[in-house]
């Protein structure tokens, strides 16, 4: 897999959250916090696990409590992937 862009990572998360929360992905605002969508710590850890699998890297279980929106997490991951590639 080519290194995904921030937009691709955002799209992945929006689809994932839509599926998890039973919402239309179109309704998910990428600047709204995961907390506000009611993502609890078990679900947030689960997302980091699945996201890590998709990206092929190991992600910290508590990542979503540090980067609290889709936008922030995607931006962080793009930076992280860039550093890994170096």
């Amino acid at each position: 897999m080519a290194t995904p862009t921030a937009e691709e990572i955002r799209d992945w998360m929006v689809l994932y959250l839509g599926d998890l929360l039973g919402m239309d992905p179109k309704e998910i605002d990428t600047a709204t916090s995961f907390e506000a969508y009611g993502l609890d710590s078990t679900a947030a850890a689960g997302m980091s696990g699945d996201l890590g699998d998709w990206l092929g890297i190991k992600l910290d279980a508590a990542l979503a409590s540090e980067f609290t929106t889709v936008d922030a997490l995607a931006a962080h991951l793009v930076e992280h992937l860039r550093e890994e590639a170096r």
């Binding site: 710590s41 078990t42 850890a45 689960g46 980091s48 696990g49 890590g52 279980a61 508590a62």
Partner: peptide, 10 residues
């Protein structure tokens, strides 16, 4: 193992 490790990947 840690509870977070389980939650991340059961």
């Amino acid at each position: 193992m840690a509870p977070e490790a389980f939650a991340q990947k059961p």
